[in-house]
Simulated scan of single mutants.
Amino acid sequence: MPEREVELLAAALRQDSADLSLYVEVLSANLAESLPPGAVRVKRRRSMTERLAGRGGSVAELHVLLGEQQLSLRMDRGRVAGEIVHEVRGVVLSRRPVDVDEWIDALARSLADAAASSARAREAIERLLT
């Protein structure tokens, strides 16, 4: 995928990121819907009020597994912490904390790499962008 398309994908992923909790909520739903089963894991935090009301709760963690990279976002009281893990056959080779912008760039690059080798991944990206 050309670099320009990766930049456009990153820009689309950044869209509406001003309200981080809402952004993570929408992004996790879009990724879970667009990517293959098992590629996205979402952990939710539910308050007592949310439990009593039967609501699912807010996103506490978002994990996206693409190839040998796992990209994680953790929400804690309105703050977002990103992490990129490079893992091969169950062995973690590197783990580094990143800010949200770097996390989005890494996600865009990983999605673009997956799209270059898979028609299904390409369709998933097109669904994310529309």
Rank of each mutant, 00 (worst) to 15 (best):
V92N: 06
L27I: 03
S21A: 14
H86L: 14
K43E: 15
P37S: 15
L111W: 03
A124L: 08
R14D: 05
V85G: 04
H86M: 12
R95F: 00
A29T: 15
R45E: 12
R89L: 12
M1L: 11
T49P: 00
R122K: 14
E50Q: 13
L129R: 13
Y23H: 15
A106W: 00
L111D: 01
A81D: 06
L20P: 09
G67F: 00
L9C: 10
D99F: 00
H63C: 14
G56I: 09
A39T: 12
S117V: 14
A81I: 04
L66M: 12
Q70K: 13
L52E: 06
Q15V: 10
E25Q: 10
Y23K: 12
S21L: 08
T49V: 11
R4V: 14
Y23S: 05
R55W: 09
E83W: 01
V80K: 03
S110V: 07
A116L: 07
A32G: 14
R44D: 03
E3F: 09
L107P: 03
E68G: 13
D19G: 07
A115C: 06
E123I: 11
L65D: 11
A11F: 04
V6L: 11
R45W: 02
K43H: 11
A106H: 03
G57Y: 02
R74Y: 02
S28P: 09
G67R: 07
G57W: 00
I84F: 00
L27H: 01
P97K: 10
I104G: 07
A119K: 05
G90S: 07
A121L: 10
H63P: 01
A116T: 09
R41V: 13
A10W: 00
A114F: 01
A124F: 05
E50M: 09
H86A: 15
V91R: 15
T130M: 15
N30P: 08
S94T: 12
A106T: 04
L31T: 07
N30W: 07
E7Q: 14
E102I: 00
E126T: 12
R127Y: 04
R4W: 02
R4S: 13
S72Y: 01
S94P: 05
